[in-house]
Amino acid sequence: MSGRYLLQKLARAVLTIIVIVLLNFLLFRAMPGSPARIASHHPGVTQAAIDQLAARWGLDKPLIPDQLVAYVNATLTGDFGLSYQFRGEPVTEVIGDRFWPTMILIGLGELFAIIIGLALGAYAGWRRGSAVDRVGGGISLVLYSMPYFVIGMPLIIVFAAGLGWFPTSGMFDAGATYASGLDQLLDFAHHLVLPLTTVTLGLVGAYSILMRSAIMETRSEDYITTARAKGLTDGRVLRTHAFPNALLPMVTIIAIDLGYVVAGAITAEVVFNWPGIGTLTVDALQARDYPVLQGIFLLLSFTVVLANLVADLVYGFLDPRVRV
């Protein structure tokens, strides 16, 4: 990979982030309600605190340049303001607390879905019309069309409420005390099973369907005929020639999907009351907690841009043709 390619992609990512920061600034200034009005709904917020807020963000000065400069300065130093909803806790801390539960849930879900989906899709596409293709294809399509809460609800009804194997919601047992770290980890894992299954099932359909068509397209390429003519076994042709090539278009799709890891989690998290970014978004919306929302929006955009950058770099590494 040449340095120029790397620089080009990096520059594009940085530029995108700058635009996003500006849009984020404008969006929340355009929304109805001012800090003063919202704070007045919360008893216990003194006029002094409101005045302090206005002074800090330059709210009594013009939007551009004063408010913008104040916002950009604060954002650059990692200061996203204070949450209204959580008694003035800094936004970074509020989001930080909720970040890892989401990363673990959706990250693991993506990982399992990618492994299972790509394997299933590759096999189904390679053996088109086989039992695996027909059954797997049908299940994939059904799962693909189901939102997380439709997958999650029956799981809760059967495995949590019915059989009682898993807890219905949360990340830890309420008020539990743990003898050791391992104990706590086990409780966490116990709570993780159902939400993780839901996320995995929700993602696996799309990956398997896309991989199937990618493999089918690759299968008719001339170099696959060459590989077969070389007397390589069917499995080897699939593993060493068809799969790596079919993976190329998948890299972009997966990366874009990974960008929505956080955003996509909302319904899954709400169903299981998982204390992640998703539930935080819903809570912040309901409470008109603009600073927190602003922080979340920035985080979401950032993950999308980052995921795309990673996709470009991985693609450049996998496909020699783009190494310009």
């Binding site: 390429e221 001339d222 060459t226 077969r228 003519a229 070389k230 007397g231 996998l318």
Partner: peptide, 25 residues
Amino acid sequence: RQMARYRWREISMVFQGAMNALNPV
């Protein structure tokens, strides 16, 4: 499986348009 023994070791092929017949990656 038996056929694979004869491919390339006994009968090999040169295809038209080697751009597509060679694996691009």
